[in-house]
Nucleic acid binder design. Structure first.
Lengths: 101, 101
DNA sequence: TAATCATATGAAGTATATTTCATATGTATT
DNA sequence: AATACATATGAAATATACTTCATATGATTA
């Protein structure tokens, strides 16, 4: 069902920066400036990343004056991360996963 | 906490062929030849894809003579796919997700 | 044990996604 | 209304992942 909806969703998660953003927003919602400082990453990178995360409704925004505060759509993501944590804990002992192709 | 284990895992899922393999194995375990016929894809592509899926323990293998039968490690994957299905059903109405970057 | 079948693998070529940089847009402040 | 601040966006450059093709390996059969 909706097979192709998997692809863009996972493409979003298969990215170090986007995952860092997700993990950062998991603690607390943040605006773009705060994210750039928190992750020490250039602003446009953050904006580009947020843009695709927002596409898939992984994050949402609210505008407050000139700032835009991004926050996690926790519904889906937190459950997925927990599943992966369990998986990794059980199955990913080796360094094999480092060199995916 | 194992942050980087997310990355290779999702990289595996962010791929049409690998997802097709997963969905095919969801129905029934198969050897490489069966997968190539089922998905109409060249053998080495299937083997490469299986290799990285196996890395992350998304699939497992058992050898039977000269055949190798691959099967899903259903533990994690099926739950994740179900979460994504729910997510997609609720949040992915638009064609926005098609043009990720 | 030579031949065949099933699968794996390396490396170059190609496709796709990310980064970078310059600039645009939109909101607030003076 | 001009300036400054916050964020977004386009496009070229770069990095990364995938595909292809030729060949290797390992198991079975004649």
């Amino acid at each position: 069902m909706i097979k192709n909806s998997y692809y863009p969703f996972f493409t979003n998660l298969a990215n170090k920066l986007k995952m860092d953003i997700i993990l950062s927003l998991r603690k607390k919602e943040k605006n773009v400036t705060e994210l750039t400082k928190d992750l020490v990453v250039e602003q446009s990178k953050i904006s580009h990343a947020l843009s695709s995360l927002k596409c898939c409704n992984i994050v949402k925004v609210k505008q407050l004056g000139k700032q835009r505060t991004y926050y996690l759509n926790k519904d889906t993501i937190l459950k997925i991360l927990k599943l992966i944590d369990n998986h990794a804990h059980t199955y990913c002992k080796s360094e094999c996963c480092e060199k995916i192709r």
